[in-house]
Design a protein around this nucleic acid. Structure first.
Length: 290
DNA sequence: CTGTGTTCCTGTTCGC
DNA sequence: TGCGAACAGGAACACA
C-alpha cells in the first residue's frame, strides 16, 4: 500500500510515540515477515531509547540510543496502529486483543504500543549496526529524495539520460527517484502530460540538458507528493488513518483506478485508459500525455 | 550494465 | 449467493 506520502504520514503518526520513547519490550509473533527477523531481534530492542524516527524512500528508520537502527518497510499491505493506554476513549484494539496479521507489537515504557499488521507479509524489519545505513545494499543504491533538496531537474536528467526503458518503469526504479510507486508515477506523468510509454532518455537532450517535458515532470512529482502528504497529514490523529492507508488523497487521483473516466486535463476530451507495463497497471490519458 | 519477467503472500473485487 | 480468476500500492532476484 504505502508509497512515499503514506510512509511519511505513518512516520508522523508514529513519531510522537517513538521519538524520545523507551522500548519496554517487543513481541515478534512469528519468526519472519518477508525476511527472517534478525537474531535476538526483540532482546536487542528492549531497553533502547528511540532518538529519532526518520524516513528514507519507503523505509522508516528508528535511530536507537546505542547507535543501531530499526529499519522497517511496510511492503504492499503493511500498516501500523498506535494505542495509548492513557486514552480511555481510544478506538484502537483493546489491550491484549490480537487482530489477525498483527505480527509485531512494540511496547513503550508508559504503556503506548505500536502494532505492525501485514497480511501479505511483503514488509520486513531489520536491525542495522552503527553506520550500516550508508553501506547496506538496500540503501546503497537509492536515488535522490523527491522532496527537499535532492530532486532537481538536472539530477533527474542525469539519472534518465540514455536510458531506453519507458519513463514509467524508470520512475519506479528506486535508484532513479527514491519513494515513488505505481500510483504516484501514474499521477505525476499525467500532470506533466508525459506519456508513460516514452523512453526515459527521450526526456533528456543529447547534450544532457533537460527538456521542457522533464522540467514539468520534476515539478509534477514534487507537487503530487506534497499534496498527498498534506492530505495524509490532515488524517493524523485519526487512529484508522494513522495506519498508512491512502487517506483522503485517493479521492484526488486523476488517473489511478479511473479507467474509462473523462480526463481531467482542462480542455482535454480524452478518456483514461489502462495498460500493462512491466507487469503493473499504468493509467493514463492517450490524448494529452505525449 | 540495462531491461524484463517472476516471485513472495493473502485479501478483495470482478465476471459469470 | 457461490466460485474461480484477476488483481493489489514493493522490490529482490534471475536471466536475456
Amino acid at each position: 500500500m504505502p508509497e512515499l506520502p503514506e510512509v511519511e504520514t505513518v512516520r508522523r503518526g508514529l513519531a510522537p510515540v517513538f521519538e524520545g520513547g523507551t522500548i519496554a519490550r517487543v513481541e515478534a509473533r512469528r519468526k519472519d515477515l518477508r525476511f527472517p527477523f534478525p537474531p535476538r531481534f526483540a532482546a536487542r530492542l528492549a531497553g533502547r531509547r528511540v532518538l529519532a524516527l526518520r524516513r528514507r524512500a519507503k523505509y522508516l528508520i528508528a535511530e536507537l540510543d546505542n547507535g543501531e537502527a530499526l529499519v522497517m518497510h511496510m511492503g504492499m499491505s503493511g500498516s501500523f496502529r498506535v494505542d495509548k493506554d492513557d486514552e480511555p476513549g481510544n478506538p484502537g484494539v483493546p489491550r491484549g486483543k490480537k487482530a489477525a496479521h498483527d505480527h509485531v507489537v512494540v511496547h513503550f515504557e508508559g504503556g503506548a504500543r505500536a502494532t505492525y499488521n501485514d497480511p501479505r507479509r511483503f514488509g520486513f524489519m531489520l536491525l542495522f549496526g552503527d553506520g550500516e545505513l550508508a553501506t547496506h545494499p538496500l540503501f546503497r543504491g537509492l536515488g535522490v529524495e523527491p522532496l527537499g533538496e535532492g530532486l532537481t531537474v538536472r539530477s533527474l536528467a542525469e539519472a534518465l539520460r540514455g536510458r531506453t526503458a519507458p519513463i514509467k518503469a524508470a520512475l519506479l526504479d528506486q535508484r532513479v527517484v527514491a519513494g515513488l510507486g505505481n500510483i504516484y508515477v501514474c499521477e505525476a506523468l499525467h500532470r506533466a502530460r508525459v506519456s508513460p510509454f516514452r523512453t526515459a532518455g527521450s526526456l533528456v537532450a543529447k547534450s544532457g540538458a533537460p527538456s521542457r517535458d522533464l522540467t514539468r515532470l520534476a515539478a509534477a512529482i514534487e507537487a503530487v507528493l506534497r499534496e498527498a502528504i498534506d492530505a495524509g497529514g490532515s488524517s493524523i490523529g485519526d487512529h484508522r488513518l494513522t495506519d498508512g492507508s491512502l487517506g483522503y488523497f485517493q479521492h484526488s487521483f486523476r488517473v489511478y483506478g479511473r479507467e474509462g473516466a473523462a480526463c481531467s486535463t482542462p480542455s482535454c476530451k480524452g478518456t483514461i485508459a489502462r495498460a500493462a507495463q512491466s507487469g503493473r497497471s499504468t493509467f493514463y490519458c492517450p490524448l494529452c500525455q505525449k
